[in-house]
Amino acid sequence: MDLSFQIQGGDFTSAGTASSQVRRTLKELGVDASVIKRVVVALYEAEVNIVAHAYRGLITAEIKPDQVFMKLIDEGPGIADIEKAMTPGFSTASQEVREMGFGAGMGLPNICRNADVFNIHSVPGKGTTVEITIQIK
């Protein structure tokens, strides 16, 4: 099953809608609750990252019997130093983002921790692509 969502940068009211839809679908498919939690926590963090940092983005989720593969492509400022961005506690989030409860510098480490395979590629000035794979046991 394939799902896709358009994400608008700065739209905090809708942030999490895509993750919520993926969660509902996985529940309907009877996927184990602990796997669902890992999928949606990783996806939600990545979705919030698009809303917080990018201009717009596209999320696709490919649900197969043995795994969930999610790809998040955004158009935005990109990340100049990915290694630094992966450091727990490091954040470039704006005050507005912090007021929404994010920007603690735990987003990318959280995604990484929950994913079985995690890839991130970024071009400064263009955007960032994140790929998350989680096995369904």
Binding site: A15, G16, M100, F102, N110
Partner: peptide
Amino acid sequence: MSDVLTVCRCDFMLITGLSNVQSIRTAEM
């Protein structure tokens, strides 16, 4: 909310002062 999302278990109550939709989204996830 990212700190909340680091907690692996799901049998707890969230106490927060964050009064917006993201605290509910985080609880949902």
